[in-house]
Design a protein around this nucleic acid. Structure first.
Lengths: 224, 224
DNA sequence: GCCTTGGCTGAGCAAGTGCTGAGTGGTCGG
DNA sequence: CCGACCACTCAGCACTTGCTCAGCCAAGGC
């Protein structure tokens, strides 16, 4: 599931977008200020950000600049006031990927979102590797050394989350969020169960463990 | 400036990529055979290699294998002929990070290059170091010289507090606050207990003490 | 050299955390 | 309609971890 972060100080815009985009199958987080937006971006790893230019506190352009220092390719759509061509130009120069002017046409916004996400996906490499483990996210194949491994789609997504963040501890709630989506309200025990299954499959040939448990912190994908 | 090495026996491909990538701000070297490619890789330390699969002499797969023995993390993009899925699969098994099939779409190639370079940079871990002690706060690993050390998450946080404030005396209450949090109401003796455990693990190989006691004041992390 | 005080240590306990096997309900293809 | 498979739940177990405590040791003042 793709994750979108909406940063807008106007709650009605936030709610409107959250409802509409959730309906379209995206996981949506809303932040009502630049500060909160930046911290949510750091926690949630959104695939795309929708950002209002005009906000009290840190304004949209500043937020954009800071988002970009963290991840220069993160797709960002700016929301601009109706008659503000200056803002638009400034925003684009600062590095926004696209802009949509208020009042928002949901259809237009949705089209821009799809196009940006498609472009961004095309840039992502198809092949993720760590040690002798290799996964091809296009062909949906996984192999450990010479051994082909078949995973269910959930196992695959879980492994992908790990492979996209090698050497980085991920706690269970982050994984729940990334793999199961925000609308999952069950126990974090599912993560344990699936990690167990993944390990079983990844180590079926007697290979060393790649998904390590860090008690009290989460799991890491790393050698040894 | 990032350096890219193109290895392709077809001069027109080489020139095309050299012009295009130079324009994008990369430093580009071109080699027209596997042999030359390998020696240029040794001289120039490229940040990324673009490698044709089909070449006379040493072929792309062999070049890839040798590149990887020198630097297993070096990002490599393979160029494959249009209808050669077998080559692709073989190439990926040998350890290419991604592949782009000919005829080359420059936009796609550029996108993949950026993405791989970003990933490569992102993998550079967040590391704290003092003397021969090294901790990676993302991967949750600690090493003293060549020796791997396993810490519990509390021990880890305590060491992190020290590593973030080297050469600074920290009293027990400050440590309690930083590591245990403000909602801890027990005895400051816990700090002593944990410092003891940390020392035990950090000095298990006979290394000199790094966490020093300052009677009446607290502890410092420093050499000697 | 003795006493006080602060720090060190080993043992022990209770709660928490993660692992696991079994089981349930739902979905999909044959 | 049945069987296979998948996502998920649950409860019990094993082990780790965080913490306490009591006694001991060492440093520094007198």
């Amino acid at each position: 599931m793709q994750r979108i972060l909406v940063i807008d100080d106007d709650p009605s815009v936030g709610n409107f977008l959250k409802r509409g985009l959730s309906y379209e199958g995206y996981a949506v987080d809303v932040a009502e200020s630049g500060e909160v937006g930046l911290s949510k971006a750091r926690e949630k790893y959104p695939d795309l950000v929708i950002l209002d230019v005009m906000m009290p506190g840190i304004d949209g352009l500043e937020v954009l600049k800071r988002l970009r220092t963290a991840d220069e390719k993160l797709p960002v759509i700016m929301l601009t006031a109706k008659d503000a061509p200056e803002d638009q130009i400034k925003g684009l120069n600062t590095g926004a990927d696209d802009y949509v002017s208020k009042p928002i046409s949901f259809e237009v916004l949705l089209a821009r979102i799809r196009s940006l996400l498609r472009r961004h996906r095309a840039e992502a490499p198809h092949v993720l590797r760590l040690a002798d483990l290799e996964m091809n996210t296009q062909a949906f194949t996984v192999r450990r050394g010479p051994r082909e491994i078949t995973l269910t789609s959930l196992e695959f997504r879980l492994l992908q989350a790990f492979m996209e963040n090698p050497n980085r501890v991920m706690n269970k709630h982050l994984l729940l969020d990334r793999v199961w989506g925000t609308d999952f309200f069950g126990d974090a025990n599912v993560v344990e169960v699936y990690v167990k299954q993944l390990r079983q499959k990844l180590e079926a040939g007697g290979e060393p463990r790649l998904i390590q448990t860090i008690r009290g912190a989460g799991y890491v994908l790393r050698e040894k």
